[in-house]
Amino acid sequence: MSVALTPLLWLALALVVVSQIKILQSTVRAMRGADAASARRSIEWAYAIVPAVALVIALAATVQAARQHGVRQEMEARANQVAPQ
């Protein structure tokens, strides 16, 4: 990955993680406030967790794809340096 894109990747990932944690915290607070039965709370908790888990999988794939993209860019840059000679 290019030097310029690395901070963008980690900053965006950090914002995604912090936002998702804040959303889960808010959902827990909201469920307590809504005075729901415990069975209902478990279901609501599951509804909140499912997208968070899917997001973690997507983020892991993103880091891998960003690294592969970086390797490709590096190889292209080297090829361009060699080509004129």
Binding site: L8, L11, L15, S19, K22, I23, T62, A66, Q68, H69
Partner: peptide
Amino acid sequence: QMLWYTVLLIALSVLPVTF
């Protein structure tokens, strides 16, 4: 939650640039 979903949305929207 609207606020945090919006922050998450913006962060997600820029991630495809990194790959």
